[in-house]
């Protein structure tokens, strides 16, 4: 219900833009999109695998928190400074920022990546192989440090090569957003 309202609002606000479709619930996603059109298939997968929940910064709209689709999939906004994590303990082991793009926990602080094709700050210089390697191995840029929680790569790695390539094809087709996401902050215990 509330998600329907949110969608309606976003759709109205961005009526002229094709990206509005990403959050609309009125039109069912094109579940039938197949490998014949990898970008359409990728758009569908990105929608149902909720990449926007974490990779699009949330802001407070008139109807409550919602993803700011003008910054679709551009990751943690560089202007939003996140410093020391809040004190956690007991049942509360991790916390998320209001943007839903920064997460503090035993792993330190992680910031969601810019998934737009901007070459300097996003995935513009990645190849499909880099993307598949990153999701499958859980390694930063496919070859580097472990990718931190809560990025659900341990689940996504079960996707087929074809689907992962379709997701990447779609991500390369969305508007570039220049946004330099900060490096993660190590947990205090690391040496």
């Amino acid at each position: 219900m509330s998600s329907r309202r949110t969608s309606a609002f976003v759709t109205a606000a961005l009526a002229a833009s094709a990206i509005a479709a990403h959050v609309t619930t009125a039109a069912p996603p094109e579940a039938s999109a197949t490998a014949a059109d990898p970008v359409a298939r990728g758009r569908y997968l990105v929608k149902v695998m909720v990449c926007n929940d974490c990779h699009t910064p949330w802001h407070m709209g008139p109807n409550g928190p919602e993803p700011d689709m003008s910054r679709e999939l551009s990751g943690h906004p560089e202007g939003v400074a996140v410093t020391a994590p809040p004190a956690l303990g007991g049942a509360w082991q991790w916390a998320g920022a209001g943007t839903n793009t920064a997460f503090a926990g035993p792993w330190g602080v992680s910031f969601t990546a810019n998934l737009t094709p901007d070459p300097e700050t996003g995935l513009g210089r990645w190849t499909p192989e880099t993307f598949v390697a990153a999701i499958r191995s859980g390694r930063h840029e496919g070859q580097g440090r472990p990718i931190l929680p809560p990025m659900p790569w341990p689940m996504y790695r079960n996707a087929s090569d074809e689907d992962l390539r379709a997701i990447f094809a779609y991500l390369q087709s969305i508007p570039k957003v220049r946004n330099r996401v900060p490096q993660p902050i190590d947990p205090p215990a690391a040496n």
Partner: peptide
């Protein structure tokens, strides 16, 4: 460095 975010090689 052997901090996870910066160590090289990363593994």
């Amino acid at each position: 460095s052997r901090r996870p975010s910066s160590q090289m090689p990363p593994l």
